[in-house]
Design a protein around this nucleic acid. Sequence first.
DNA 1: CTGTCAAGCACAATCGATGGTGCATTGTGC
DNA 2: GCACAATGCACCATCGATTGTGCTTGACAG
Lengths: 336, 336
Amino acid sequence: MNDLSKPTIYDIATKAAASPSTVSAVLNGSWKKRRIGAETADRIRQVARELGYSANIQARALRTTKSGIVGMILPQHDNSFFASLSQAFTEASRERGAMPAIISTRRDRDQEVDSLWNLIGYSVDALMIVGAKAHDELHEICRDANVPHVFVDQPCNAAPSVVSDNAAGVEELTLAILDRAGAEIGEEIYFLGGDSHLYASRKRIEGFQAALRQAGLPAIEDRVLACGYSRTASFYSLQDLYGRLGRLPKGLIINSMGCFEGTLEFLSELPEQEIAMCHFGVWDYDPIAALCRISMPMIRQKAEVMIRKAFVHLDARDTAPSLTKIKPELILPRTL
Amino acid sequence: MNDLSKPTIYDIATKAAASPSTVSAVLNGSWKKRRIGAETADRIRQVARELGYSANIQARALRTTKSGIVGMILPQHDNSFFASLSQAFTEASRERGAMPAIISTRRDRDQEVDSLWNLIGYSVDALMIVGAKAHDELHEICRDANVPHVFVDQPCNAAPSVVSDNAAGVEELTLAILDRAGAEIGEEIYFLGGDSHLYASRKRIEGFQAALRQAGLPAIEDRVLACGYSRTASFYSLQDLYGRLGRLPKGLIINSMGCFEGTLEFLSELPEQEIAMCHFGVWDYDPIAALCRISMPMIRQKAEVMIRKAFVHLDARDTAPSLTKIKPELILPRTL
DNA sequence: CTGTCAAGCACAATCGATGGTGCATTGTGC
DNA sequence: GCACAATGCACCATCGATTGTGCTTGACAG
């Protein structure tokens, strides 16, 4: 063994006076099946420990075509929901003895596809695809490369998918707002942010309208300001609404943390009393936001549950299309 | 080629009537050096495209002992500073054509060590170690396994390290608070959170005291409440201080977002006017916090710069101990 | 004393890509 | 017409672990 490189089973074999195949069998646990003597096994393990052996996983992967890598493709790390997913994914991978490879791709089709090919080059054992733009394309590549995969957040109708129950969540959130606000709110409740081309936004808007219906309010189309997910777009969209109404609406459902930032940015220019006249509700949860001086309900998506469900599909090598909806949690503000 | 598995250079070689080594040379770009004819090269590339070839990176890694993987070990994904580091790391890896493997280890020694061995099994090309508890041990393992590595956030004095300039940042932050508060603040300014056994906290406390000195205030020891990084610990620590003083202090420097959450939780029980009497400053930046109704300066660590500097060490295969301090940015609240 | 059998292990092929070496061609100069 | 150099490519060993196959012992029955 060269001092600069890691010891191999051959080094161990030499030192323990055994054959490489015996060493391999002992070290990967199949030695019972191969009828290796207990003392030989002990001797080999001893030498392995002395040498500080750790298997070359590339070599094993080459032979077995199983890499031990589970991949996750997601839009960004610096977003609290996606970060919770990463965290839960890492922990679930650890339980399975696999190595997580989490790649963020900025909702960019090319980056998504490149990263996928890259992961396939590493023979990923399984893949979780979160909020992907090119979901259908990614699915086809995975199918052709025979990689088990699940979609999360943004479903694909040709593969197993796990999403938050967007409609139910927003419906509950909206009803909570209507309830807190009482009759005074009239018909003046708005939905801010999101992109109606995307599944999640569409479902949330449906939930919003279902809540209005349930409350006996007309589901007026222009109450939905689907201006995208960005902070600045929401800022301007809200500014525009404020201009039209001459004040804030009575109720405002906000579609994401990014939009909430835009909202806060706009609010920071308004006096306290004006803000107090509006009832806010936010999809997604952020601990700081939950404690900020504006009291409002929030929706917390159950990242850990979603990851667990997603792994169930991967573990079962289930390829049939399916859609699992996880009901998010409504976090009511502490009543002071 | 078996239909279920990916095509290999052998499949291409057969179909293009060439040898596997030629195919390899063409596909990895070394064909000029190996004097392969341009038309042969074209033919091979054509076949490769038809077959949807992508290299088996495990096999390449086995042969070349370069995996193309760059690893990052960090405490958690769901923290805005660490999440920015992950994001910057991913982008920097992409530029280098490497695959990022980001593993969170919950500040747990065993998880840190396990993950490191795991990464070594994959022959990681380079490693970034963020906020590690077992930094010295990790360094030794990396050294023995001959893995280029850099420490970030928590330095190791035996290897290159990149950290925020904690002392300078807190000093600036504290001076900003003292400046905003004016003479009224007297000596009543506190530092909340952190662990004085950890490098970062120690330096921040030094910065705090340097600022006091500079302002001509005595550096009284018990102005530092190093209660740890957790939300609940900060909550109780602040509650305790409030009890002792009978009210909030005039100034409060908060050591992290987690501590800030605890602070907000405590403040949420106080009336607005009391809160307005205290000047807050926070180490770390969070967009929501920046927009919450409490106006305060914040320190934003430069995650992207830190990652870039760290990669400089890795790329240069620089193993000499060194400590690069990146000055964080002071974000002043918008003056309304 | 020979045949049978299990226990205990070694041998060698294999996974896919790489790169050193070396064998044919074709081209050039005298 | 011949030596010699490019040119273009094929052969083969190799990376480290896995696994089907088969060899060698010793025990024991007949």
